[in-house]
Structure formats: C-alpha cells, structure tokens
Design a protein around this nucleic acid. Structure first.
Length: 643
RNA sequence: GCUCAUAUAGCUCAGCGGUAGAGCACUUGCUUGGUAAGUAAGAGGUCACCGGUUCAAGUCCGGUUAUGAGCUCCA
C-alpha cells in the first residue's frame, strides 16, 4: 500500500503494516519516540493496522499531540488504576485531558482530599514503574456492557448504552486484564513514555456537567515530558498567584469584603482613587463620543420589572425589597435594579421622539445588584453589587452599522489607553428560540458584521449564541500574562423597546420602535479594576496609581521643604503623600515600593539647599536628582497624558 | 446552589484536649540616617458565630455564616 507522509513523500509498505512498522521503516529514532499515528487526520494507536492507502503522520512524544496522548494515558490508565487500587469500591466516570493536564472523575464513598494526593501519586508512580504493557481489544456493545457490568462500573455502562456505536468499543487492558478502561484512545504504547506529573487539586464536579446529577470527585493533575517543563509550569502558576488582586488589594489597602455584605466591595481610599480616576477617564471619553450621561433609581417597583420581563426570567438573581408594613402603611414590592436598561427606556419615553433625534446615546455609571449564587463569587471579579460603564443607544435599524463602528473605535481607543493592545471580537448570531422577524435578524447581523469588516478587525462567529432579543458582539482582551477576559459587549435588542413601548415618529408621521443597543466597554468597574491590578501586578501606570508620589524626608531638618514639595504636588492634583517619620530612607523606600507607589521623591539636605528632588521610580534602582520645577512639570504631564 | 477544604492579634501563620504563641505592623524611648527592614521596651486576642461531648474545648462532634479551589450558573 502507498503511504503519503506529511511532507508529501510516498512510501510503499506491505499490506497489514502498523504505524510502528511505518515509523521503523522511516528510521529507528522515530520508532523510538513514536507514540501514536494519525491516519487521514484521525488519531490511532501506534500498533493499529493501517487499513490501506492513506496519508499518515507519526505522532512523537515530543509533539503537542504526543504530550496530550501522554496526559490522556496518564489519567485514563494510571490515575484511574491507582484510584481503583486504593479505593476499590470507587466507580470510574471520565478522565479527559485539559489544558496543561488532565482530570479524572470518580464516584467514591471515602472522601478524597488534597492530603490524599501524595498517596495517590505514589501509587501512580508504582504503576508506571511496573512497566505494564497496554493492549487493546475491540468488542461489540453487549460484550463491552458485560465487562463493565461485572466490574460494577455503572458510569461506563451509561456511556456505552448512550453510544450509538454498535461494535468496535475499545477496551484497553493492562497486565493480563487486571485493569480495563473504556476509551476512544489512542494511548501510549507503553507507560515508559510518561514524563513528569503532579496531582494538583481535588474538587467536586457534576456527572455530565449537569447540576441535577450526582456530584463526583474530580482529581486534577498536570503532566509534562520532563521535570524542567513541569517546574516551569508550576512556577508560572505561582507567578500568577503573586498578582492575585485579592492579595494585592489587601497589601495595597485598596478594598475589603466582610461577612455582612458578601459580594459587595468596601472601597478604601486608595482603591477608590483608582475607581474615581478610571471613571473620570471613561466619562471624558463618553462626553467626547456623543453620549449623554444620565442617572436612574436603584430601587424600582416590581411593576417595571414585570413589564420588562425581568420578573419572569431573571427574578432568582434579583434582590427584592419590601417596605416594613408595621412602620409604613404602604405595601410595595421593589427590586434593586440588576440592569439599567428598563430605566433608560423610561428616560427615553419622556416626551415624543422623532427619527431626527436618533441616535440617542445614554450612558450611566449604573450601580446594579445581582444575587449571584454563593459559590460563584470571586474577589472583585464576580460580585453582587457593581457598577457598569453602561450605555444604551436608541437608533433606527439603518443606524446599527454606523453605531457599531463608532463603538468599536471607542472601545479600541480605551483598551489601548489602559494598556491592552490586543482584543478579539466574537459575533453571536440568532439562537433557535428568539423574538423578531428573520428580516430584522438578517439586517442586524449583517450590520454588525459589516462594521467589523470595514474596520478590518478579525472576528469569530459563534452561531446561535446570540441573546433571544438580538445578535451581539463580545470583546475579549488579553492581559500581560496571556489570560483572556471578556469585557466589552454590544448587543442589539428588538425586544425591550417593544415591551416598554419606546417609540419614535418616522418620516411619514408613523410610529416605530427604535432598536436598542446595550453596550459596555469595561463591563463593571469592580471587575475591570481587578483585571488592571492583575495585569500590572499592582504597579499601575502613573495616571491610574492610587498613590502617585510619596515625598520622603531623609533627615528631619528638611521637613519644611518636603512639606512644600508635597503642597505643590497636591495643588496640581497629584495624589501625593508625605513621609516625615523618624525612619531611615531605606526603610521608607522599602515600604512605599512594596505599596507600588510609582514615584518616591527623597528629600535630603542637598535637595533642600539646591531646590531639587531625588526621583526614584518603581521598578528601578536608579535615582535622578532634578530641579524642583522641572520635576513638577514632568509629573504633571505624565498625569494628564490620558485625559 | 453543589463537593471538598479553611476560619487564632491589623497582616502572614504556628499551636490540635490541661493558664493563648511567633514574625511583621502598631505605641513609646534611644537613634537624624542618602535610596528595599537601625535599636530596645510595651501594648494588642470571647481563638468566626450557635449548640453538643468532656472534670476540662482554638483543639473533638454537629449546625450557621463567610472565604478558597473546582463544578454549575452568568436572561
């Protein structure tokens, strides 16, 4: 038979040859590192027979695919077997690979905790050392069921029963059928190929990811070809933990949470400085881009939420308030607003709107509350009380495209000012259950798509992922360590203007419902500040820093001059503090550096005599002595650069 | 909401049935110093909350609340 290799060269092999035979034929080195093959793009076991003429590539242990197969074998063959050895009554569910590692879900009577991981790892190493061979059997459905029924592996039975496959169920055996697993494969030909690994955590996970099902125990691990790669990975996790905004928030005295208000931020002065600066920055951008800022109530009667549809669809996430009847003779049920949109429609609805008024762009730093499930909260990233940089554009169908373009340009400018130069766009199109005619969906989807195309941005289409009320764009930015955060959103809505009777008078004097576009750039201030803190490891750019300058005296004799310098800074709107404590300058430098203050101005006798300051910037060990007025000028310029 | 874990001084943590500990921070004294920790002393705690076991409970057990890691969710 004729085998085509990835470089398009041809090789002739006798019929019935396996992937291993092919690898051997190409070279002994390749045969040694080969772990699987890919036949016409489909991964197969190394010792599988190649059925006939085909394009075949050899997967080696050092390739990305090879590592993934190694992780797969490690979880499905080694971790699973170790669990069965240590906890014979446990039942295996599934064990897939994930980014950088793998997990296995098991049902078990004995609680497995992180303390048990060491024990399980030791058992895994024992299994690997035993150098078990892995052999594969193909069986039909009834035989496969028999095997797992006898072993009381109920989850495997479910998987087999739910499969529409008739036969060719792949059973992988180790050591004379002592251990068997059902698997799509491929697996390593031998456990010798397994490199360095570590079990990392234990948690619960629902069977099939459905909260209605059993909670299984999930054991996570990471695996690499060698110790070096493993350690690099573990170190990178540690580095990411160092920039955790919750830790930095405490160290930098930015905010706190407490039991009485879970998921609600207590902003401290320094944290609020970041918040205020960011908000002013956004406000300034909105003012320059045709938005009108408004402000609407936070506590609103349920009638409005019934009209908007939130009472039906979103109620479990809403904080409901009732007035105490004992104290007031009025009984009303109110809700804290979870979104600003219904209130914005109320503002729009005051007065008669003409097509000549459109587009109308309302912006609100809208304080919203959502009752998030307790287990979902996470520092600033997921909270119950937050403020959006929200906005709603009321426009005609024909204006959607131009509004999209204006929005994307504004978003891109803001992200880049904040230090994020890379973002992805995702276009989500009509879902199965939706409102609005196909005609308007066609129009809105193509308006969004055309706008992106004309601006030459790459984008992905997520078919069917739009909201029931209209198509949307999501904007995902990439941070300094490569993590992605979905922040911006732009959603067309054909539903709400209709439900809440928003109208405008058209050219012919007839009434129409405007299209309403929900849009945000940061998402929520809380979450975005969390992202900024982690992106910058707390070392915010000068204009955003909570404390921008600390003036530190070296000897008490210069305190007056230090005070004078600080006063000049404050007069110019620089967030600056003064440190006149009876401490050595190195002590002061250490403390303010660890608080990530961007600029420390050290003042000693020389500076006082020469009317200069000694500038020390965070991240640098150099100092620069500069004439006071020149230093002030530099600092003021740096502060205003984004406004 | 679910699973598992955690909750001790302002912070980071030790203590795991028998009189509450350390380092840092804080206060005071000495020290006036040149760019990431001078020095000595002092003060600081219903050991998250409620209940149980015990002669005796931060310590063991149950519940509550919050937090963490995941899962699920995010019209």
């Amino acid at each position: 038979m004729k085998i085509t290799l990835p470089d398009n060269s041809l090789r002739e092999l006798p019929a019935g040859s396996s992937g291993y035979d092919l690898a051997k034929d190409i070279g002994p080195g390749l045969a040694k590192s080969a772990v699987a093959i890919s036949i016409d793009g489909v991964q197969k076991d190394l010792h599988d027979e190649i059925p006939g003429d085909a394009t075949v590539s050899i997967i080696t242990i050092n390739s990305d695919e090879g590592i993934e197969i190694m992780r797969h074998t490690l979880t499905a063959q080694v971790l699973a077997r170790a669990i069965k050895n240590l906890y014979p009554k446990s039942k295996l569910a599934i064990g897939p690979t994930i980014e950088n590692g793998f997990y296995y879900d098991v049902e078990t009577d004995d609680a497995i905790s992180v303390d048990d991981l060491e024990k399980i790892e030791a058992e895994m190493k024992k299994i690997i050392k035993s150098k078990s061979s892995i052999t594969k059997k193909l069986v039909d459905k009834s035989d496969a069921l028999k095997v797992f029924k006898s072993k009381k592996e109920t989850y495997k039975e479910i998987i087999i029963n739910e499969s529409d496959q008739k036969d060719n169920f792949q059973l992988y055996y180790q050591d004379n059928e002592e251990f068997v697993d059902l698997c799509r494969g491929p697996h390593l030909p031998s456990l010798n190929f397994i490199g360095s690994f570590k079990l990392t955590k234990v948690s619960g996970a629902y069977w099939k990811g459905d909260a209605k099902n059993n909670m299984l125990t999930r054991i996570y691990g990471t695996a690499w070809n060698n110790d070096k790669d493993l350690n690099n990975y573990l170190n990178s996790i540690e580095e990411a933990q160092k920039r955790d905004h919750r830790k930095l928030g405490k160290e930098m005295d930015l905010f706190h949470f407490q039991d009485e208000a879970p998921g609600m931020v207590f902003w401290h002065p320094y944290g609020w400085n970041i918040y205020k600066t960011l908000q002013n920055f956004i406000r300034n951008k909105l003012d320059k881009n045709g938005y009108q800022e408004i402000n609407t109530p936070q506590v609103v009667d349920r009638k409005l939420w019934e009209a908007s549809g939130h009472w039906d669809k979103y109620r479990e996430n809403m904080f409901i308030t009732e007035i105490d009847e004992e104290q007031a003779n009025e009984k009303r049920v109110n809700a804290l607003k979870p979104m600003n949109c219904p209130c914005h429609v109320q503002v729009y609805n005051q007065g008669l709107r003409s097509y000549k008024d459109l587009p109308i762009r309302y912006a609100e730093f809208g304080s919203c509350h959502r009752y998030e499930a307790s287990g979902t909260m996470h520092g600033l990233m997921r909270v119950r009380g937050f403020t959006q940089d929200d906005g709603h554009i009321f426009c005609t169908e024909d204006q959607i495209e131009s509004e999209t373009a204006l929005f994307i340009n504004l978003l891109s400018e803001i992200y880049s000012d904040l230090g994020f130069n890379e973002f992805d766009i995702k276009l989500s199109t009509r879902p199965e259950i939706r409102i609005g005619s196909d005609k308007i969906w066609d129009k809105a989807e193509s308006a969004l798509e055309n706008a992106i195309k004309k601006l030459n941005y790459p984008y992905k289409i997520d078919e069917g992922d739009g909201a029931f009320y209209g198509p949307k764009l999501d904007f995902v930015l990439t941070d300094a360590i490569g993590r992605e955060w979905q922040c911006g959103t732009f959603q067309a809505d054909f539903n709400l203007p209709d439900r809440l009777n928003a109208e405008y008078v058209g050219e012919k004097g007839d009434k129409h419902h405007p299209v309403m576009i929900h849009r945000a750039i940061l998402g929520s201030f809380e979450r975005f500040i969390g992202i900024l803190i982690e992106n910058y490891s707390g070392k915010m750019p000068f204009w955003l820093a909570p404390q921008q300058v600390v003036v530190a005296s070296i000897v008490s004799e210069v305190n007056d001059y230090a005070k004078e310098v600080q006063k000049l800074l404050i007069e110019k709107g620089i967030r600056s503090e003064i440190d006149l404590r009876n401490e050595k300058i190195s002590y002061k430098v250490r403390e303010h550096s660890s608080k990530k203050v961007p600029i420390i101005l050290a003042i000693g006798k020389n500076e006082k005599n020469d009317k200069t300051v000694s500038i020390r910037r965070i991240g640098s060990n150099d100092t620069e002595v500069v004439e006071l007025n020149k230093a002030l000028k530099t600092i003021i310029t740096e502060n205003s650069v984004k406004f």
